[in-house]
Amino acid sequence: MSDDLIRTLLEVPYVSKFGVRFERRGDELTGVLPYAEHLVGNPLVPALHGGAVGAFMEVVASGALLAAQPLMRLPKPIDVAVDYLRPARPQDVYARAVIGRSGSRVANVRVEAWQNRRDAPVATLHGHFLIKPVPADS
């Protein structure tokens, strides 16, 4: 686990601006994106901005990688693919990540974001992140 880096991740200007927080139970981590008007993409639907939801899922993917193992620095996204399944309503968004594979340099992560019902996700992300694990002998 990389507790200091999780703190760093949440204190990054962009992340703290939107008030993202993590709820942790051991190595399991749930991200919370608290609703605020500045997250709205289209007020006429109304729906949260796809970019805001996508970015939130990227942050949760990084958080999950840091909660799972000690890393030397924050994970860097290589590529992400986001599917938008339903409009994200003007309310809090939650997300949880599953690590598909975590090697010595790259990790494959899937994230699901939901609002009212865990089984009715608003968006999913799947992506690859560059990671730098702490060497096993240190």
Partner: peptide, 9 residues
């Protein structure tokens, strides 16, 4: 509405 968005950084 966005159906999907794939980004290479």
């Amino acid at each position: 509405a966005t159906l999907d968005l794939r980004i290479d950084y």
